[in-house]
Design a protein around this nucleic acid. Structure first.
Lengths: 341, 341
DNA sequence: AGACCTTCCGAAAACGTTTTCGTGTTGAAA
DNA sequence: TTTCAACACGAAAACGTTTTCGGAAGGTCT
């Protein structure tokens, strides 16, 4: 077991000063050819690598990005991390991941832990509880200390910072319009409770699309799910009790659950009921029938967020208060759960 | 914008020494009640929090765990991270995630980056390329420097360290036996190429199960997939050209692809063909029909790995060479893709 | 009055770097 | 011989902590 070697040890062995070793390894012209060679050879032999922690302390930069998301066992969030990792690595950054578990307290604790020097900046998506409480003091505090934050997907207008989102509203309108264009009239909506920002926006999009096509809104066709674990019964009831042509679901899980329920009852998809989901994940792709969805490119979103963060970190003027909100475009991936014209 | 306050600044403001401030905040008996109160009040007012980097440098401990996995957009690996996060947080550790992208080079680079002081220990699963090359020098190097490593799932006997695995062999035997017990004889295998350790073990399990039931092994029923992106055609061919009762697939993706192919041809599941997969992910659960799988509890695996690592990190005797291999039990989750007796 | 013990606090080292500045030696020019 | 530049290197500060040790001030005891 040979422990990591430090500048000090090399200096001692070679009987020179620490400064000389450091400069030699950096090919400084201050050091004679001779000494440089000697030091470099020795360093290579002992596989010297500078200690990251010491560097971080000195440079006041950790070259690390902190990500805080509600959960990781979730296709969309996983793709976002993947996107962040990619561009982070390209720029020599590491990524430290914390899970809020949809809990406000955990989100706060995690942010505070990381804010004490561990990272250079945050990329985050709000937990449900945080969105419900509308308490963002932990975020503004961090920003106030000069640490940049980029929010994605689940964002809030109450905080001024860079953001990356999709146009949930427009995407929902387009999805519903697609159903209408296929001649479907009685379109149900399966959505989340309103405090989830993206759910709310998608719901609004659904309403707008119906209105602009002069379709009367039927509250009985709108299902707001609180408890995602037990959505099955509610969805099954909806399909059984209402005459429905199509379903627009604000996420994959609702979409696939709706399909399973419909199949169970004996309905055919897409002939009897068409389904469009949101977030193009693994479920939509591999479900039978496969599901038509609004594709939300997590890789792109994560990549963009990372790029914005790193740009800010490495920009000259520290506190540029000019924050941007990037909108990632979506598109509809048509699969087997919707009829072809 | 108020930047983070340091001991030095507090000391200056209060006209005492840095040591006094530090001790006061730690409630040291060395400091008078008076001074202590004064310092603590001031620190609280300015929301003082010690700098993690400085602490890491001093203590030679980062309280951070590094995870290196092949990919994160993958249900199983995501659950493992989740498991690691849980117990890591409980013990005050953070988690830094790196993706090897199934590439040997990336795995090496990531390990080297993190090994230079950024973390206290590794939890990792080998990339495909690493398993193929059988080159593990980067891992033994890290271990040699005194940094503990825990490997999970995709492990190797060439490295001595703590490991967490499932009994792939036995689990496969049980799965295939289940099919046989249901009266199925012509059982196909869809597996990976041999260098993937878990794929190989599961394949062996399949073979053993057939042998012990005196069923002749038909090479035509064994499909080894190299390129996972284009497995569709091969699988469809297999189903079309061979008379098959059942399919044992070594992962979810193969299983669901097989089902989709069979349905496409017009076969009924499970009546015409039964299917058992491996890894109980989101696909198996939400597929139609849902898929019977060998459940491999990623949360448990990650949690166990984290526990082993932390125990080693915090154990008294530094270089305990007594390495353990924990086996996480699996169980078969029976769903719609297999017939009930 | 001297010896000694508390109480309270500060100086300094240590962790591993980088970088600025100072300094001793050498050689050449005046 | 003196003067000055060029060269090669080392000392020290800085980043923010924790902790050991030493010491000043004051009190108590003989």
């Amino acid at each position: 077991m040979k422990r990591k070697v430090t500048l000090k040890q090399i200096a001692k062995e070679l009987d020179v000063s620490i400064s000389t070793v450091s400069k030699s390894l950096k090919d400084s012209a201050e050091i004679s050819e001779d000494t440089r060679q000697k030091v470099q050879a020795f360093a290579k032999l002992y596989n010297y690598k500078p200690n990251n922690i010491a560097l971080s302390l000195k440079n006041k930069k950790t070259k690390t990005i902190g990500i805080i998301i509600p959960e990781i066992v979730h296709h969309f969030f996983a793709t976002v991390i993947s996107g962040v990792e990619n561009v982070a690595n390209e720029h020599g950054y590491n990524v430290i991941v914390c899970l809020s578990d949809e809990s406000f307290d955990k989100e706060v604790i995690n942010m505070e832990m990381l804010a004490n020097g561990s990272i250079d900046g945050f990329i985050m998506s709000l937990s449900k509880e945080t969105q419900q409480k509308r308490d963002f003091h932990h975020i503004s505090e961090v920003i106030n200390q000069g640490m940049p934050v980029v929010m994605f997907d689940r964002v809030t207008n109450d905080i001024l910072c860079d953001k990356v989102i999709i146009d949930d509203n427009l995407s929902a309108i387009q999805a519903v319009q697609t159903l209408i264009d296929k001649g479907l009239k009685k379109i149900a909506l399966i959505t989340t409770v309103d405090y989830v920002s993206v759910g709310k926006l998608r719901t609004e999009g659904y309403l707008k699309a119906l209105k602009s096509n002069d379709i009367k809104i039927d509250e009985n066709l709108i299902l707001k799910i609180e408890d995602i674990e037990h959505c099955d019964e509610a969805i099954e009831d909806l399909i059984k009790n209402q005459q429905i042509d199509a379903i627009f679901a604000v996420n994959e899980l609702f979409a696939v659950t709706a399909i399973k329920s419909a199949l169970k009852i004996g309905l055919k998809i897409p002939e009897d009921i068409a389904v469009i989901g949101f977030t193009d994940g693994i479920i939509s792709k591999y479900s039978s029938p496969s599901i038509t969805t609004v594709s939300q490119n997590g890789i792109k979103m994560g990549g963009k967020a990372a790029k914005m963060l790193i740009e800010r970190l490495e920009s000259e003027d520290e506190d540029d208060e000019h924050y941007r909100t990037e909108v990632i475009e979506t598109h509809l991936v048509e699969r087997e759960s919707t009829p072809t014209l």
